[in-house]
Nucleic acid binder design. Structure first.
Length: 251
DNA sequence: CCATTAAACACCC
DNA sequence: GGGTGTTTAATGG
């Protein structure tokens, strides 16, 4: 097991300690406390396709992505899976679970070889109870997450397929939640479909439309975003009539 | 009808 | 061998 983790951390570009010290909330802590957090935080390697977290298991740590990309997956009883969002390097997740149920409500699957930082529950609770600056960070984080989720519900209910793919991809660039997302997103078309709740071939059509519109480039096992504002505001033609049907039905 | 999708294909990294 | 692009038949609004 440790062999795998060591193999994944090839040249180890960023140590856990460097990662924690470089996090946006590190500045909210006094130096002694930050040092203690660094000592208590453990690193874990997760190979592509491996689980960082499994649904219905106890949540014992707050998790930051040092390197790689992980997907937060919901699964239905019949075995289908849907990706709620993907967390890239620099992102943190699980604070809501640690503060409430303390049982994971989703799977977290590495979409490629990843390294994660695990802040133990006890450490997280100490920060929560003793540092107001950390609380400010958490409020911002929860607010950003809520905002993202409201957007996602809107995508599902109001948008057509092409536009939904565009917005779901754009949502991965939320700077508050995912501070260091590069323009290349290493997700295959199956995974993008899972994000937008679409089949693979419909996703492929949508991506081709977006590429034709000059908003992104389709790569092998991923896409490169060329025009992020364009993706955020994209409105396909075929969708507009579906939206019209929903607008002012009585008038 | 029209759009979507699962299944099955043929490429090609 | 898995990711991609495309076709076909089946399905559902």
């Amino acid at each position: 097991m440790n062999r795998a983790a060591a193999a994944i951390a090839r040249p180890a570009p960023v140590s856990v300690e460097e990662f924690v010290r470089g996090s946006s909330w590190a500045g909210e802590l006094p130096s002694g406390e930050l040092e203690r957090v660094c000592e208590e935080t453990r690193e874990r390697g997760v190979p592509a396709g491996g689980y960082a977290v499994r649904t219905a298991t106890p949540a014992t740590c707050w998790i930051g992505v040092i390197e790689g990309l992980v997907k937060l997956n919901l699964s239905s009883p019949d075995g289908r899976e849907s990706t709620v969002t993907a967390v890239s390097a620099g992102g943190w997740f699980g604070e809501g679970t640690l503060m409430k149920a303390k049982v994971w409500r989703y799977d977290v699957v590495a979409s490629r070889d990843s390294r994660i930082a695990c802040v133990p529950l006890a450490t997280f609770e100490r920060l929560l109870h003793t540092h107001i600056g950390f609380n400010h960070f958490l409020l911002g984080q929860l607010n950003a997450r809520l905002s993202l989720m409201i957007s996602l519900v809107g995508f599902d209910r109001l948008l057509g397929a092409d536009t939904r793919v565009a917005r779901c991809l754009a949502s991965l660039f939320d700077t508050a939640l995912y501070p260091r997302t590069g323009l290349f997103i290493e997700l295959n078309q199956n995974e993008i479909g899972s994000l937008a709740a679409l089949s693979r071939q419909r996703t492929n059509q949508a991506l081709q439309a977006l590429e034709k519109a000059g908003l992104l480039r389709i790569e092998f096992c991923g896409i490169t975003v060329l025009d992020l504002p364009g993706l955020q505001h994209y409105q396909g033609e075929s969708e507009s009539r579906q939206v019209l049907k929903l607008r002012n039905p009585a008038h």
